[in-house]
Nucleic acid binder design. Structure first.
Length: 418
DNA sequence: TTTCCACAGGAAGGTACGGTCT
DNA sequence: AGACCGTACCTTCCTGTGGAAA
């Protein structure tokens, strides 16, 4: 084996980290309108008045979180200057699907680790009680930032409990304001009316970035991230164009640019080219799919496997019933007891929202009624490779035997070639 | 125009689990 | 130990749906 060593490689990047998600640039590009609304909504804080409840909504990667951390950072600096007692508590609600869990996490956010409470077991009123006490102890003005708040779904009680805590006498010493950030545009409409009126005192909508704005964002970051001349012609434009296609998502556009840079660096290229961008896009899409599949529970994967075998037999699009039958066969072979068809319909709907399968409704009237049809969104080989663990356990279905054998051969030969 | 197929998907309730409290 | 809590994950039951056929 040849000698292995690591040497720094900074031929392309000046500061790669400035392309990552948690980097807050010193100025925000292309969100002037939103920033001025947001700024006005935060003004009462510095006046020592009761803070507004603010609701931000817009798709992922349109700058909601970035603008928030930028403005709140500024606000904290200024509150020190003007001697305002301000505490900001930020909580990302990803994976928290009830008000109860949000309340537990808020309490733990304020408390020191040795006084953390457990995520289950407490009655709901008790957790709220803990929360009011902690907030009162903090005193002054407290801003609670709930990022991705749409995760809590229907259970939105905390969103009206907090704004009313003061008038209900649960809190006496603190002035509390909520800043809710949502990726789901429908979330606001689905809130119960009493929540909507209190939480959405000030609503600020963040529209998707258009291609020109994305270019400006990418230019700004690239200037810090890359050496001069490291980016080839059209690289920024292409990343921006893809980003605009992906619902104006700046995060994805930045990931893409970094991915392209990484590929170029691995190839020891002098510049990043549009080819690198295209390869990075394929790579990112593939990674997204692999992650999505790996996170699925056993029976969900088994349903996907069932659909995959049908796809390999060119039997797709297949209706839910057909998928269900194949699923039952596979479950039998694997000695797992199968779920009901109702449950499998839910699984298929999940796979569809995850963009792993594509489903469409059909209706053949009297001679067939209404039904759904499903097919894979990606090619059989990619999906199979993401499910290798499951397949190892339940066995290889004859319809995909050849595909798996082929891909193994490819893997082995490339290992020896390189 | 009316009929009716065959499933979609909402509603409600059951069960098991990891936790707290007394 | 045993009552109780919130939640994930299922099942059972059932109403709703849209368009081809009659």
């Amino acid at each position: 084996m040849s000698e292995i060593s690591f040497t720094p490689d900074d031929s392309l990047y000046r500061n790669r980290d400035s392309l990552s998600e948690d980097y807050t640039p010193s100025t925000i590009v292309g969100r002037d309108n939103e920033i001025s609304q947001y700024h006005a909504a935060l003004q009462p804080v510095i006046n020592g008045e009761r803070p507004n409840n603010i609701f931000l909504y817009g798709k992922t990667g349109v700058g909601k979180t970035a603008v928030t951390s930028y403005l709140l950072g500024q606000l904290q600096d200024d509150s020190e200057k003007f001697d305002v007692d301000l505490t900001v508590i930020s909580l990302n609600c990803e994976g928290l699907n009830s008000s109860y869990q949000v309340a537990v996490n808020l309490v733990n956010k304020i408390r020191t680790p040795e006084h953390h409470i457990s995520k289950t077991g407490h009655p709901q009123y008790e957790v709220y009680e803990f929360l009011w006490n902690e907030l009162d102890d903090l005193g002054g003005t407290v801003l609670i930032v709930l990022d991705e708040v749409d995760n809590i779904g229907e259970s939105d009680s905390i969103l009206y409990q907090i704004p009313r805590a003061r008038s209900n006498g649960n809190i006496n010493d603190a002035k509390v304001g909520i800043i809710g950030i949502s990726n789901d545009l429908a979330f606001r409409e689905n809130l119960s009316p009493k929540v909507r009126s209190s939480l959405c005192e000030k609503s600020i909508s963040f529209p998707p970035y258009d291609a020109t704005e994305l270019e400006a964002v990418l230019e700004q970051r690239a200037e810090v991230a890359f050496h001069e001349g490291a980016l080839g012609d059209g690289v920024i434009q292409l990343c921006a164009a893809y980003g605009a296609q992906d619902a104006g998502d700046a995060r994805k556009a930045l990931d893409l640019l970094r991915g392209a840079g990484d590929i170029a660096r691995a190839e020891n290229a002098d510049t990043v080219t549009t080819t690198h961008v295209k390869n990075a896009r394929d790579e990112l899409e593939r990674e997204e799919l692999m992650d999505g599949i790996a996170d699925l529970a056993d029976h969900q994967q088994l349903v996907l496997y069932a659909l995959t075998t049908l796809e390999a037999e060119s039997e797709t699009p297949a209706r839910s019933q057909t998928v269900y039958q194949r699923y039952q066969e596979l479950a039998e072979v694997a000695a797992l007891d199968s779920r009901t068809s109702r449950r499998v319909r839910d699984f298929l709907a999940d796979l569809s929202t995850l963009s792993i399968v594509v489903s469409s409704q059909r209706n053949d009237g009297l001679s067939g009624g209404q039904y759904r049809e499903h097919k894979l969104k990606h090619d059989v080989e990619t999906v199979l490779s993401a499910m290798s663990d499951l397949i190892e356990r339940v066995g290889i279905h004859q319809s995909v035997r050849q595909t798996i054998a082929d891909s193994d051969r490819v893997m082995i030969s490339t290992t020896f070639d390189s």
